[in-house]
Design a protein around this nucleic acid. Structure first.
Lengths: 130, 130
DNA sequence: ATTTGTTTACGAAGATATTCGTATATTCAT
DNA sequence: ATGAATATACGAATATCTTCGTAAACAAAT
């Protein structure tokens, strides 16, 4: 079974998760130095957030050495799916395709990406025929 | 010019906006009676929320009669676009197509809807060729 | 006119999220 | 060993969101 059901990371928590998903297990200092670039918060703020996230079960941590190592406890894919589902529900009245059209319309997707999507659509249609 | 740039309705505010988008201008009572079905909050809670939303510029209101009439001050489409853009940014690392694949994969879309999306993709590709 | 019901206005409590100061512990270089 | 640098822990201030109680204004019915 997957990590959690009702995950709902906050804005700040998501920023931290993104760093950990990208970089893998990291110290507070490492995470903080990346966040600092785009955000302006003190070191202890990042620390506190990560501690709370650990309490909530959003992060794992390794305390075997003095400097703790944190890692995401929930997968990026699961989190994306959950947040997306929720957005479809609450913002797009349950219509995934409405969201898709909106997403495609407002972002220049590369030809390659569009092809990938079309192939995917074909697959889905085939499956539905069975 | 359009209503606002950095709109960021909260969870509760979004519920109210959805009602107003669907039903058009309404009284607090009308909105509340719909919210009551799925939520459990008092009347004055809804009132207060709508008052605050008016202060924030999310709602317009007509106070010409004793019972005020509220209406959404931001369009559904704009709001959807903004929230979607933000999600693409913060959750999908800027990749709209990644979001699209995720959305299509996890929701049973009707054949019709899928066709619509494919047609749309074709149009986009044609435009890109020019 | 008095009561009854509905509405808005106001203020404040409760919940959650974000921020940081300060204390304590640990490491490392001297 | 002492001091400087860095880490965690803790508590609390601040901000924002959500909730509701209560009062005042108003309308309609009796």
């Amino acid at each position: 079974m997957s990590a959690g059901k009702h995950i709902k990371p906050t804005e700040s928590e998501l920023e931290i998760l993104r760093v950990l998903w990208e970089k893998g297990p990291s110290t507070v200092r490492e995470v903080h130095e990346i966040l600092e670039k785009s955000k302006d918060a003190g070191y202890t703020t990042t620390l506190k957030l990560m501690q709370i996230m650990h309490e909530k079960g959003l992060l794992q941590r390794d305390t075997s050495s003095k400097t703790h190592i944190y890692a995401a406890a929930i997968s990026q894919e699961n989190t994306q799916r959950q947040l997306l589902d929720k957005m479809i529900d609450t913002v797009f009245n349950g219509s995934a395709s409405q969201l898709v059209l909106q997403a495609l319309g407002n972002h220049k997707s590369s030809r390659e990406e569009l092809e990938k999507i079309k192939q995917y659509l074909d697959e889905i249609e085939k499956q539905q025929q069975q």
